[in-house]
Design a binder for these strands. Structure first.
Lengths: 202, 202
DNA sequence: GTGGCCTTCTGACATTTGTCATGTGCGCCG
DNA sequence: CGGCGCACATGACAAATGTCAGAAGGCCAC
């Protein structure tokens, strides 16, 4: 009984190389490859793989949102995320989306193959180091609105623009930013954005 | 006559997979692998490869600085950069460092093998799309100081701190920031930082 | 049903930025 | 040599931001 795998990663070099390596494992077969989020979805619908191995950052839709959709459409398809830059918040989001495996690209291909089997068997696997990071980073102290406003502030937009986009008054926006900044212990909103990003809270 | 290759990439998964794929080409042999900048240097000194394939982002020292050092120590060793996020400025820096190949990770392994041969033969190869980006982005309009100050402003530090770190008066810092912002056509310093980052000018 | 937390607002204030005019001195290039 | 652009500065003003106090309504929990 072979295990059918979908591989989604926007980097052709990596995807191809990975496919070649996984092909060496005789119980695994890569039935589809995709280079973007939407393509991954289409491929999954067409080929109904047992396990979908998704890159976190892809054009179109990221790995987590693909996983969320897949969970609804193909409940039998297990999903796992592979990523280069694993931030704690991503892990949390991924787990909430029903993802069963979360590994950094620093693992070896053999290890990856094992993890694919683990995931297929219905178990979960989370990279210990990433898990430790996630635990030590803890939960976001920000309220929903604070996070939303901080997000909008991320690209350096002035308060007026943030207020308009969030349909809030400027005063409210400043209050939220102020409280977010003090909760994060940051110097100002921009440092706060950086901190929240690092911890995966936005 | 086989072509001896050094492979440096911090992602074990990719490096291993790449090595496996390049091994399929019978004129190429991967003589060393490294997961960080310093390690890449050490490996290069020990194994004296014909071509060093370096990832742009690695812990310790990035691909370009490794290439610069290599150019001095092993002039016969050709260097090339492989990267996921190719920003125009990186390309320019890389070329200045004597790098002969610059390709995104979206190429296929076969293509990469060809490019390795091209580079070894003494020719250059730059991904056409990245080249186009670099040309359209053009040269940085920023003066040295403007760039320096913008860099210090990157993590959201207040003017006072920037002034101290750059040993400038606060007024001067604001002037530089102001002119940088207007040269880049940005809304404010933070957007300017983003823009300059995107274009590889910082 | 009261107390606590979140959302949302207003107004006022201090501080920080952004912008402009203007000045000096240096080095380079024609 | 004279001009140009850059580095660096000052001072002043307008605009944006950060901080605080206060207040109203909603929701949940005890």
């Amino acid at each position: 009984m072979t295990l059918r795998v979908l591989l989604a990663d926007d980097e052709h070099l990596i995807r191809g190389a990975l496919a070649a390596l996984l092909a060496l494992e005789d119980d695994l077969v890569v039935v589809a490859e995709a280079a973007s989020g939407p393509e991954a979805l289409a491929m999954a619908r067409a080929h109904r793989p047992d396990v979908a191995v998704l890159d976190l950052q892809m054009p179109g839709a990221d790995g987590v949102s693909v996983a969320t959709t897949l969970r609804g459409e193909l409940p039998d398809c297990r999903t796992m995320i592979v990523t280069s830059h694993g931030r704690p918040g991503h892990l949390k989001r991924a787990l909430a989306a029903g993802v069963r495996g979360f590994v950094p690209k620093t693992v070896s291909a053999q290890r990856l193959a094992e993890i694919i089997r683990t995931v297929h068997a219905g178990n979960r696997y989370v990279d210990p180091e990433l898990a430790a990071d996630a635990i030590s980073a803890g939960d976001s102290p920000l309220t929903e609105r604070e996070a939303e406003v901080l997000e909008l502030a991320a690209d350096g937009a002035p308060v007026a623009e943030i207020a308009e986009r969030a349909a809030l008054s400027q005063g409210t926006v400043r209050n939220y930013l102020s409280s977010a900044v003090s909760k994060l212990g940051a110097e100002n909103r921009h440092a706060a954005v950086r901190l929240a990003r690092e911890r995966g809270w936005v």
